[in-house]
Amino acid sequence: MAEYTLTTPLSDEDVSKLKAGDIVYLNGVLYTARDAAHKRLVDLINEGKELPFDLQGAVIYYVGPTPPKPGEVIGSAGPTTSYRMDPYAPILIEKGLKGMIGKGKRNQAVREACKKHKAVYFGAVGGAAALIAKAIKKAEVIAYPELGPEAIRRLEVENFPVVVVNDVYGNDLYEEGRKKWEGK
């Protein structure tokens, strides 16, 4: 497994060098969105309207942080389970999304979209929420404040730690890892 440091927005070239199992440290901007925000984004696309942020090369982080204490940039901010975003992810990928960060399995449609349009799914460590928050240097709600923890935030991150789970070649770290260690 290789280690990379990448800066967003991600290019086709960036994501094409990544293989399932690689460790990546992300710099730049991530956008947060969970179920409710995804539904709204896809509704906007279907209505031909503009999105609250530019999808080209963007990376979305599936997270609903705890409220920040006074003086904090963000509360604890670990990944949520990704399958709930599966119905919405393929169209976002088709429209330019290059990366998703979450935890847990994706369905076949998302994995196909990653292959076809060159996008990657990264896994962050669930429950490492206080540690991950350290990598977030700035956080600002840019859409849907009424959704509370589920609002869309623009995060500026430094060395945000993730592992490639699904790459652009159709590999899946969960399947490969399990196969390797099954029975051992």
């Binding site: 997270v63 609903g64 942080p65 705890t66 204490k69 509360g75 604890s76 901010a77 670990g78 949520t80 460590v125 669930g126 429950g127 490492a128 929420a129 206080a130 540690l131 991950i132 928050a133 350290k134 923890p149 730690p161």
Partner: peptide, 22 residues
């Protein structure tokens, strides 16, 4: 991954910051 989980517990304890956002 386990190292990250253990490091996270240290940070959470020192800062009284939630171990997990959930």
């Amino acid at each position: 991954v386990l190292k990250q989980i253990l490091d996270n517990a240290k940070i959470a304890e020192n800062e009284w910051k939630p171990l997990c956002q959930d």
